[in-house]
Each structure stands twice: as C-alpha cells, then as structure tokens.
C-alpha cells in the first residue's frame, strides 16, 4: 500500500506573527519556519502504518519555493521513502494546492492520502476535503484513530459532540487531528540517510493547473488588543466584582 503525505512549510508554532506596518500582510522576514504541526502528525501516522506492515511506501510532497525541501527532508528523515517538490513562487489558495495535489495523485495512485487538518498560518482547514472532492475519494477528516483492514479504512473522527467513526473504501483521504499520535523526532543517523533519499522536483507550471486565485488579500490588521484588567486579592473580591462591576453573575 502506498501512502501520499502532502506537507506544508509554515511559521513555527511558537512564533507570534506580526502584521506589516503597511497592513498588506504578515511579516515573515527572518521568522523561523517549520513543518506545520498537523502535517507532522500525518507523517507520523504514515510511518506507523508502514511499521505495522500495512504500508509499503511513503511519499511526502510539498508545494512552494525551494526552501520547502527542508520540510521534505525532515519527512524523509522521519521515515518517508521519497519526496516530491512541486516548485512555484505563486501565492496559492487551498483550491490551487488541491488541484496540484490531484495531479500528484494521478501520477502516483496512492491508496491513502494523509494530510494535516489545517495549517496554522492560513487556518483554512480545506485542502484535504478539496483534494478528496476533486479525486472523487471519500474522506475521514479530523482523525483521532485510523485502522486499515480489508481494503477499507476505518477513521474515528473528532467532532463537536464527541467522536464519530466512518468506514471508507480505498483510496481515501484522511486528515489528522491532534490526538491521532505523538510525532517522533528524527535521529541523527536518519537525518544523514535522508540526504541520499530522492526528491523529484517538478515545475508547477508544467502540471496544467490554473494557478490563479480569485481571492485577493485586501488588508491585514493586527487584532484588537484587550486591555489587561485588574488583579484581585481574593475570591471574595472577585465574586463581588463579577456581581456588581461586570454584572455577569447574579
């Protein structure tokens, strides 16, 4: 079984982003970048399926400029077998990303595509579902458990009221939620070995996908700041203020 894991290079989750002074976008100059945390969970799940003998090959794919190869190398160091880099400097929305991934799915015919449920930069939560729709695959989003058996995959999903389990025929798309697994770290020998694993670089413009988005970013503003409040000295004072000053309890 072949697993395709699309990954995104995103701002490191510990970094608090700043808005540019001219309000055109956020400022990513010299900001630390990393693999999107939900994508790390996707890579980890693919590796575990390979360790269980369910998967035979793991391909990581990323879309963007040359630096995304750092994240592809990270995926290879964690245990993926080979990488694909779709090279483009264009500013893409989820729909264009999903269309490019659709081309990769056509090239590779994976049995399972595992993606992070959302990227922590755009916070869109769209790509996996869009890819599923474009390729006609069923989807199991926000997965907290994935079991492959008899040509099907059972996915337990984190939903607002609790958990839901669905059964999907393969090939299928799965997107990862936080509790699916705890990603490992790459060991030094594996990081060295990853340098020799192949990365196939393809030019996005050659894939026959319209990369123009109809969505424009008009402006980006910093959020309204809450003013810090007061420190109260005791529970009694707190309750008194909530009752008489804020009037939110009676």
């Amino acid at each position: 079984m072949k697993i395709l894991v699309p990954i995104k290079r995103a701002i490191d989750y510990n970094v608090k982003v700043r808005v540019k002074a001219d309000n055109t976008d956020v400022d990513l100059t010299n900001v630390k970048m990393a693999m999107n945390p939900f994508c790390e969970i996707a890579v980890e799940e693919a590796i575990r399926l390979k360790e269980k003998g369910v998967a035979t090959e793991i391909i990581v794919v990323s879309i963007g400029e040359k630096p995304v190869q750092e994240q592809i190398r990270t995926g290879l160091a964690l245990g993926a077998d080979r990488g694909i880099h779709i090279e483009t400097g264009a500013r893409l929305d989820s729909l264009q990303i999903a269309k490019l991934l659709q081309k990769v799915v056509e090239q590779e015919s994976p049995d399972l595509v595992i993606l992070g449920k959302q990227a922590i930069d755009s916070d869109n939560n769209q790509t996996g579902q869009m890819l599923a729709a474009l390729t006609g695959m069923p989807q199991g989003t926000f997965a907290s458990e994935v079991n492959v058996e008899d040509g099907k995959v059972k996915v337990t999903r984190e939903i607002d009221g609790g958990l839901q389990t669905v059964e999907l025929s393969l090939p299928a798309v799965v997107t990862t939620d936080l509790r699916l697994n705890e990603p490992r770290y790459a060991s030094l020998p594996n990081i060295m070995k990853a340098k020799r694993k192949p990365i196939d670089v393809q030019n996005a413009a050659d894939l026959g996908v319209n990369l123009d988005s109809n969505v424009t970013l008009v402006k980006v503003m910093p959020p309204e700041q809450r003013k810090g409040g007061v420190t109260v000295g005791s529970v009694e004072e707190l309750v008194e203020k909530l009752k008489n000053e804020a009037k939110v309890i009676s």
């Binding site: 930069d121 755009s122 970013l217 980006v220």
Partner: peptide, 9 residues
C-alpha cells in the same frame, strides 16, 4: 489568520 494574531480582509 495565524491563530487570530492577524485579521485578514
């Protein structure tokens, strides 16, 4: 976007 650290129009 960015966990609410920026507000995009």
């Amino acid at each position: 976007i960015y966990a609410g650290n920026a507000i995009a129009t």
